[in-house]
Nucleic acid binder design. Structure first.
Length: 496
RNA sequence: GGCGCAUUGGUGUAGUUGGUUAACACGCUGCCCUCUCAAGGCAGAGAUCACGGGUUCGAGUCCCGUAUGCGCUACCA
């Protein structure tokens, strides 16, 4: 039985890179009939928050990625992690390190690492030079018993190398000389990442570890741990990273909300669309078809189809039109205009409701009208937000007139101030009032008045919707109905 | 500093065991359609396949080197 897991640390919003890892894990599990598990890596108590855990769970739910079995909270397994470390010490595979803990400040950590490495190479010391590495057991036990604080480190052999066959990146090797005696337990007894991950993965029966490429180095350390523990090593598939447009790391601090999955929900993305877009970042289907529903994605997905080069998430921070990747935006629009009514209507309902535009009749006697209206306007919308902003005039009489539209379609034709109310009089007599009859009436009236039909059409569009763009005007007349059409044509509102 | 990975048009990606004019999607330009804007249709611009060597009759595809980028290198995860 194949078992995979998504193991985020709850230290903030759900990053789109993490969301993609979750997606790939899920697709793989569903494709092969395995289990997809969720583990919250909350061992860093200071940084972990419940709110973040909630956002991760909600994010997965939004993307439609359901997980099997109960969520595992890593912090709950700390006793097992400690026990494993102690067992390794007892077996002589790990040792207590009584070196006093160094003070580190996070800001300069990377620099510190490089500096230390430089210093180490010049003074000739290596990863095996820890003075406590070969401390006699009796002395180690005595000092521990006396209450002296210590960290626990894995005893990595002097000679040898780790190797594994990465499903994405191929054969990987690392000399032991490149690997330090990694810390397993902090001097306060707190288990560290690499230990916890391995113990939990073993405990959960994980067979395939699918995670970001930034973990490749960790994988070598973890293999050492599997070996020390005498446990079979799972298969690994590392994923290329998602980078910012400058090829740098995508981070909240630098790039803001565009990296947070929550943003896409808040800004009107259809979950299926974003999921589809995410799937195409680093993975490509066997054929050229890119728009795929979940079932298709699942069917086509394979670890072998994952590329090795990091992908750039292409967006322009200062341009509202391109606030996120163009292709994601395009895909969202594509979904909005093509998904079934049954799928779309609930999303539109939520959007309208959030903006106090929803009326219960839309699910009752005005049900058909609502569906037809949505079908009419969805064609040119890019996000669900558009239903409450650009689409506002269809659901409320309280809508704004865009200055540009008023200038272009109304004020440039001074006669419209009289023509439009007069047109309203004509329309009022139509029965039935349909796209066809209103068109006939408008065109005839334009001819009588010696003006172009377009003048009346565009003027009407702005009077009825406040905008310069929108669906075919006669469809709008029909959808809005005679009363509202006539009333809006007569209202002098935008003229003042 | 060390180790590792990557490098195909602006972006996401295809390019099978090396073989004619490097393919698809988004974006971009123009035209058509038309009451506007989209959508749609048609046409088009844009890649010396990072660079330099080499192997070969022939290389985006194999080898070596260089550059650039990214990742890791922590008693963070």
């Amino acid at each position: 039985m194949i078992r995979v897991r998504f193991a985020p640390s709850p230290t903030g919003y759900l990053h789109i890179g993490a969301a993609r890892s979750a997606l790939f894990n899920w697709l793989f599990a569903r494709k092969v009939g395995g289990k997809f598990l969720l583990r919250i890596e909350d061992t860093d108590l200071q940084r972990s928050t419940d709110e973040s855990t909630r956002s991760i769970i909600e994010g997965l739910e939004w993307l439609g990625l359901d997980y099997d079995e109960d969520i595992v909270f890593q912090s709950a397994n700390a006793p097992q992690h400690r026990a494993a470390a102690n067992r390794l010490v007892a077996e002589g595979k790990a040792y207590r390190d009584f070196t006093p803990k160094e003070k580190r400040d996070d800001a300069s950590i990377k620099q510190g690492i490089a500096d230390r490495a430089r210093a180490q190479s010049t003074e000739g010391s290596d990863h095996r030079s820890n003075p406590y590495r070969d401390l006699p057991r009796e002395e180690s036990d005595r000092r521990a018993a006396a209450g002296e604080p210590f960290a626990v480190r894995l005893k990595v052999a002097h000679e040898g190398k780790t190797s594994f066959e990465d499903i994405v990146y191929g054969a990987q090797e690392r000399n032991y000389s490149e690997i330090e005696d990694l810390a397993l337990l902090r001097s306060d007894g707190h288990p560290l990442y690499n230990l916890s991950v391995v113990i939990d993965d073993i405990e959960m029966g994980i067979t395939h570890v699918i995670r970001g490429q930034d973990h490749i180095t960790n994988t070598h350390k973890q293999i050492l741990l599997y070996d020390a523990l005498g446990t079979p090593v799972p298969k690994f598939a590392h994923l290329p990273l998602i980078l910012a447009p400058n090829k740098g790391k995508l981070s909240k601090r630098k790039h803001g909300e565009v990296v947070s999955l929550t943003t896409y929900r808040e800004r009107g993305f259809v979950p299926a669309a974003f999921r589809n877009f995410l799937a195409l970042l680093g993975w490509s289907p066997p054929d050229t078809k890119e728009i795929m529903k979940l079932e298709e994605l699942t069917q086509e997905f394979s670890l072998e189809g994952i590329g090795r080069a990091n992908a750039i998430f292409n967006f322009q921070e200062n341009d509202p039109r391109h606030w996120t990747d163009d292709k994601a935006l395009w895909m969202n629009a594509e979904y909005i205009r093509t998904i079934s009514r049954d799928q779309l209507l609930p999303m539109v309902k939520a959007e309208l409701r959030a903006n106090k535009l929803w009326r219960e009749e839309y699910e009752d006697e005005d049900r058909e009208w609502f569906a037809k209206t949505v079908d009419l306007i969805r064609q040119r919308f890019h996000t669900l937000k558009d239903f409450s902003s650009q689409g506002r005039a269809y659901f409320s009489d309280d809508f704004d007139f865009e200055d540009a539209a008023v200038n272009k379609n109304l004020k440039k034709g001074p006669r419209l101030k009289e023509l439009l109310p007069a047109l309203a009089d004509r329309l009022e007599e139509m029965d039935p009032f349909t796209a066809e009859t209103s068109e006939a009436a408008l065109r005839q009236y334009a001819e009588e008045q010696g003006v172009k039909a377009g003048l009346l059409i565009n003027g009407s569009r702005t009077m009825l919707t406040g905008q310069a763009v929108g669906p075919s005007m006669f469809e709008v007349f029909a959808i809005l109905g005679k009363d509202r059409s006539v009333t809006r044509l007569r209202s002098g509102v935008p003229w003042f």
